[in-house]
């Protein structure tokens, strides 16, 4: 078995004294692992860092095997990420999010979104918007997409302002009014191409965080990414 493609390195694990196990996200193939012999050498270790992209060649006798990677780095982002705390935390959080996906299951749109988030130089407000949209799309790709198009009570498509924390379905303003304190706020920028209003990005992170916790982190008994709290505070002006 053999394939070659350019992929994003999302994790690196030491293996023995000289080798590394590389966790990558590859277009058309999804999250793929492979052993890099000699990956801990001075020359290779600096290049094989999370956040960098590499031209990968994977070889194995059977498809189920871990396989061997040879990697030639094509885009070096790690040093730039290390220099900027927000982007460093962002890269770690995105890698943690991609790690929620099953192995060898392609999610090319998510990968494109991650590369866009890593490469574009957004300011904090723009990054908050893009990251909240990414988490919403991640939920959908994981099979827990929210229904934000139609009111769960009346069936209308306009003036949707809240989301039920149980069903993940939108609720219109009139129906939401008596239960506002028990519902999650639905910022308009998540459903329409409009700029966020004050407090919207924070509300969006509360919304996506609630459903990621409910469907993924708690269900799988894993901790939320350690970087998410700081990053969401920073991007919503809380720091």
């Amino acid at each position: 078995m053999e394939w070659s493609a350019e992929g994003l390195i999302i994790g690196v694990r030491k293996h023995g004294e000289t080798s590394l196990i590389l966790e990558t996200m590859v277009p058309g193939r999804g999250r793929c692992f492979g052993l890099v012999r000699g990956g801990r050498s001075r020359k290779q270790a600096a290049a094989l860092q999370p956040g960098n992209s590499a031209l990968l060649t994977w070889r194995a006798r059977l498809e189920d095997h871990l396989g061997l990677f040879t990697a030639e780095v094509t885009t070096m982002r790690a040093a730039v990420l290390i220099a900027d705390r927000t982007r460093l935390y962002l890269s770690q959080m995105l890698a943690d999010h991609l790690r929620l996906l099953p192995e060898r299951d392609p999610h090319d749109t998510l990968l494109e979104a991650v590369l866009m988030l890593l490469d574009e130089h957004f300011d904090d407000a723009e990054l908050g918007v893009e990251l909240a949209r990414f988490e919403l799309y991640l939920l959908e790709e994981l099979g827990f997409g929210l229904d934000l198009e139609t009111c769960a009570v009346t069936g209308v498509h306009e003036n949707l302002t809240h989301v039920s924390p149980k069903s993940g379905r939108a609720v219109c303003a009139e129906e939401a009014e008596p239960y506002k304190d028990r519902l999650l706020r639905l910022p308009r920028f998540l459903t329409a191409d409009v700029p966020p209003e004050p407090g919207d990005v924070a509300a969006a992170f509360v919304l996506t965080g609630h459903f990621l916790d409910r469907h993924v982190w708690t269900a799988r008994q894993i901790e939320p990414p350690a970087t998410r709290d700081w990053l969401t505070m920073k991007l919503t002006g809380g720091l």
């Binding site: 860092q49 999370p50 956040g51 790690a78 290390i82 460093l88 935390y89 890269s91 350690a226």
Partner: peptide, 15 residues
């Protein structure tokens, strides 16, 4: 170390 994980830890400690 000047690795992504090392520097994430450094920022966490600084916090």
């Amino acid at each position: 170390n000047a690795t992504v994980e090392g520097q994430t830890t450094a920022h966490y400690i600084t916090d």
